[in-house]
């Protein structure tokens, strides 16, 4: 009985493609060939004309439509677009560019004195010091964020770098204090060790 014969994928593919098949599949192959032939029907010329004309017109109309973004495509939110287009936003953007540009030039100190001074005064209001000469005169004076000392080291906040009491050991200590916390820790450990002794 043919039920006992296993059909391989190859047998099935050959059958479905219309190729020669195992004799046990002759009946199915004949059926497949018959349905393939019967389904290959002719269509009236009027139907062809009507369908083709409609399809071509629909395709042409669809091709002329603007391309819509696919669903899920990120789109700039309406609110953001309004902000971008607003006058205030434009003014803010221009101002920001101006501030950054003038600040950079003033910080570099390349402006003529007549221009550098007013800009430095303006930036001084918000805490930026663009007075190079004054900074040089106050060498050793501690600022809020520290200042450049005589030997190039940073003077921490609240520490006075006094020229009269200049001591290389102190300077080394200050410098080490700022730049090498590990050294300080070691120093403290040594102190503790001395006390223990």
């Amino acid at each position: 009985m043919s039920q006992d014969r296993h059909l391989s994928d190859h047998d099935i593919e050959q059958l479905l493609m219309g190729n020669d098949v195992d004799p046990s599949l002759d009946g199915v192959a004949t059926w497949a060939a018959a349905i393939r032939r019967a389904s290959d029907t002719s269509i009236s010329s009027s139907a062809v004309t009507a369908h083709v004309t409609a399809a071509a017109a629909a395709a042409a109309a669809a091709a002329r439509l603007p391309t819509h973004p696919a669903p899920g495509t990120p789109e700039t939110p309406l609110m953001l677009r309004r902000v971008y287009n607003s006058f205030a936003a434009r003014v803010a953007a221009i101002s920001a560019v101006f501030v950054v540009a003038t600040g950079g030039i003033a910080a570099a100190g390349v402006l003529p004195d007549s221009v550098q001074e007013p800009i430095a005064d303006v930036y001084g209001i918000v805490g930026f010091d663009f007075h190079p000469e004054e900074a040089a005169d106050d060498d050793g004076a501690g600022g809020d964020d520290g200042d450049i000392g005589e030997d190039g080291g940073i003077v921490p906040v609240g520490v006075k770098d006094d020229d009269d009491d200049d001591d290389s050991d102190d300077d080394d200590h200050d410098s080490d204090h700022d730049h090498d916390h590990d050294h300080d820790s070691d120093h403290d450990s040594d102190d503790d060790g001395d006390n223990d002794d």
Binding site: S39, D40, I43, V48, V52, A56, A59
Partner: peptide, 16 residues
């Protein structure tokens, strides 16, 4: 692109 000749060719090929 909506070319009628193309639709006719595809229709003739596939419609039966």
């Amino acid at each position: 692109e909506g070319a009628p000749w193309a639709w006719e060719q595809l229709y003739t090929w596939l419609s039966p």
